[in-house]
C-alpha cells in the first residue's frame, strides 16, 4: 500500500473506474431511494420530497412491526439451522481425504449454478401434496399396511383408514426449509475456510491432554472457528432477512416477510415513498448488526492484546 502513495497516477488509473461505477450505479440510486423515503405521494405517479418522517412513523404500525419481527424470526431460525447443518458439512469436508475435498466443495456450490427461481419451483415439486416427500411417505404407508395385513392386523386400522398427505407447502415450515436450502452454502464456505486453516495439532493437543472428542469440539474447535462462525452467521442472516422469492412462492398468507411488503409497495400498492422507508429501516438494522459485530470483534482483539 505504501507504493500507491508514492505513485498517485497508478493509484488513480486503477481506482477511478470502479469508484465511478460505484458512485453512478450504487450510491446515486441509493441516495434517490433514501430521499424518496422522506417524500409523499401526490396523485397517481408524482412524488414530492417533503422531508417529513411520516413514512418511518407509519412503519412503526404494529402490522408492519409484526412482519419485521416475523422476518427476523425466519432469518434467525434459518441461520441457526444452517449453522448446525453447515458445521457438520464443513467438518466432514475438512476431514475428508484431500483428493475428495475439491469435489465435495463443488457439490456444496453446485446449486449456485441453477437459477434461484427454478430451484424454488423444484422445491415445490418436492413438498407439494402429490410431491416427492408425500409420495415416498405414501409408499411407506402402503408397505407398512401390507405388512400389518400379512400378520393379520390389517383390519384394525392402526395406521388410519387411508394415507393422509402432509401439508408441507404454503406455510412457515416451507419458507424456513426453502431459506435453509438456499443459504446453506453461504454458511458452509466460511466455516470450511476457518476449519481448514486451523492447525490440526490444536485438536491433537486437546486429545493428548485427556479431553474427549466432544469436549475438544466445544472447547477448542468451536472457539478457534469463531471468526468463520461469525462471518457465516452474517452472510447467511443478512440475505435471509431480505428474502423475497422464497416466502413469495413457498409461503402461505401468514408467512409474509418484509421484502414481500416492500415489493407490494413498489408494485401493486404504488406507494414508493413508504416502500423506500421500509427498505431503509431494513438496511439500518443490518448496519447496526454488522457494527455491533465489529465492535465486539474489536473488543475481543483488544482483550487478547491487553
Amino acid at each position: 500500500m505504501e507504493s500507491w502513495r508514492r505513485n498517485p497516477l497508478t493509484f488513480w488509473v486503477f481506482a477511478l473506474p470502479p469508484s465511478l461505477w460505484l458512485a453512478v450505479f450504487f450510491l446515486a440510486p441509493l441516495a434517490l431511494v433514501w430521499m424518496m423515503s422522506f417524500g409523499e405521494k401526490v396523485g397517481l405517479i408524482d412524488i414530492v420530497i417533503s422531508w417529513r418522517p411520516d413514512n418511518y412513523l407509519r412503519a412503526m404500525d404494529p402490522l408492519y412491526l409484526q412482519i419485521f419481527l416475523k422476518s427476523f424470526w425466519f432469518a434467525g431460525l434459518t441461520t441457526a439451522v444452517c449453522l448446525v447443518m453447515g458445521f457438520l458439512v464443513a467438518v466432514a469436508i475438512t476431514f475428508a481425504p484431500p483428493r475428495r475435498r475439491p469435489l465435495l466443495l463443488l457439490l456444496v456450490m453446485l446449486p449456485f449454478w441453477t437459477n434461484l427461481l427454478i430451484r424454488t419451483y423444484a422445491l415445490i415439486a418436492v413438498f407439494r401434496t402429490k410431491g416427492l416427500v408425500n409420495f415416498g411417505l405414501e409408499q411407506m404407508w402402503e408397505w407398512s399396511q401390507s405388512v400389518l395385513q400379512g400378520v393379520g392386523l390389517g383390519d384394525l386400522g392402526l395406521l388410519g383408514p387411508e394415507f393422509e398427505p402432509l401439508q408441507l407447502l404454503y406455510n412457515n415450515f416451507a419458507v424456513v426449509a426453502g431459506l435453509v436450502y438456499v443459504h446453506l452454502p453461504f454458511m458452509v464456505l466460511p466455516l470450511y475456510a476457518a476449519l481448514d486453516r486451523m492447525d490440526r495439532s490444536f485438536i491433537e493437543a486437546s486429545l493428548d491432554l485427556g479431553a474427549g472428542h466432544i469436549r475438544t469440539f466445544f472447547s477448542v474447535v468451536i472457539p478457534l472457528a469463531m471468526p468463520g462462525i461469525v462471518s457465516g452467521i452474517i452472510i447467511t442472516f443478512v440475505p435471509a432477512l431480505g428474502s423475497f422469492l422464497t416466502p413469495d412462492l413457498l409461503g402461505g398468507t401468514d408467512s409474509q416477510m418484509i421484502a414481500n411488503v416492500i415489493e407490494r409497495q413498489f408494485k401493486s400498492a404504488n406507494d414508493w415513498p413508504f416502500g423506500a422507508a421500509l427498505s431503509f429501516i431494513l438496511m439500518y438494522v443490518t448496519f447496526i448488526a454488522i457494527a455491533l459485530r465489529s465492535l465486539w470483534a474489536g473488543r475481543a482483539r483488544r482483550g487478547s492484546a491487553a
Binding site: 495439532s201 493437543a205 486429545l207 493428548d208 491432554l209 479431553a211 469436549r215 478457534l224 469463531m226
Partner: peptide, 30 residues
C-alpha cells in the same frame, strides 16, 4: 486421551483463545 503420555508439539499448539494459566489447567480440568 487415555494414554499415560503427554506431548509437546513442534508448533507448540498452545491454545490462542486461552490465557497461559488456562492452557496449563486445561489437561487438569478435563
Amino acid at each position: 486421551n487415555h494414554r499415560p503420555v503427554n506431548m509437546v508439539f513442534q508448533s507448540y499448539a498452545v491454545f490462542p483463545h486461552m490465557t497461559v494459566a488456562e492452557n496449563v489447567a486445561y489437561g487438569l480440568k478435563v
